[in-house]
């Protein structure tokens, strides 16, 4: 890795790896505070699987917690707009003519709230992720870490 990509990765670590995690957790705690039933479930699962011990990376406990994390992110907080593409040729998308060279943006905010992919999309339902929903979704229906061709470092971790 040369200096330039190394500097880029370092930059990602500070921006993508710090602020996004802090915000995701802030919103997740807010949502949990508004949904005591979900919070109680989280508490029970955390205690049942960890028994007061700290979780370990790659251990089994975080698996059931993924739902909390994903829905926290999917609900009110994710990055609004971080996906762009350039049309390499004239084309039509969703009935709109797109001339070559046009820069297109996709809104994660809208995609993550699409009832086509997420029934009752505004509801905080972490269990919606419990049965492998993430694997069934089309590639860009859920992309909280963006969908850059070389995706940000944070997206690389499971």
């Amino acid at each position: 890795m040369t200096d330039r990509p190394a500097a880029g990765r370092s930059h990602d670590s500070f921006i993508a790896g710090h602020e996004t995690t802090a915000l995701a957790l802030s919103w997740t705690w807010y949502l949990l505070s508004q949904h005591p039933d979900v919070e109680a479930k989280l508490w029970r699962r955390a205690h049942a699987t960890l028994g007061g011990r700290p979780p370990k990376r790659g251990g089994s406990p975080p698996v059931d917690l993924h739902g909390k994390r994903r829905d926290g992110i999917a609900a009110p907080l994710s990055a609004r707009l971080r996906i762009c593409r350039e049309a390499l040729q004239d084309c039509e998308i969703g009935g709109y003519a797109v001339p070559k060279g046009t820069t297109l943006f996709m809104s994660q905010w809208l995609m993550h709230r699409s009832s086509r992919y997420f029934p009752d999309p505004e509801a905080f339902m972490p269990d919606r992720w419990a049965d492998g929903l993430a694997k069934r979704l089309p590639k860009y229906a859920y992309c909280p870490s963006g969908a850059a061709l070389a995706s940000v470092s944070a997206a690389a971790s499971p």
Partner: peptide, 12 residues
């Protein structure tokens, strides 16, 4: 985002 899950589980 692995760190978010670990933090959530620890704090919860």
């Amino acid at each position: 985002m692995m760190e978010a899950v670990l933090l959530l589980a620890t704090i919860a």
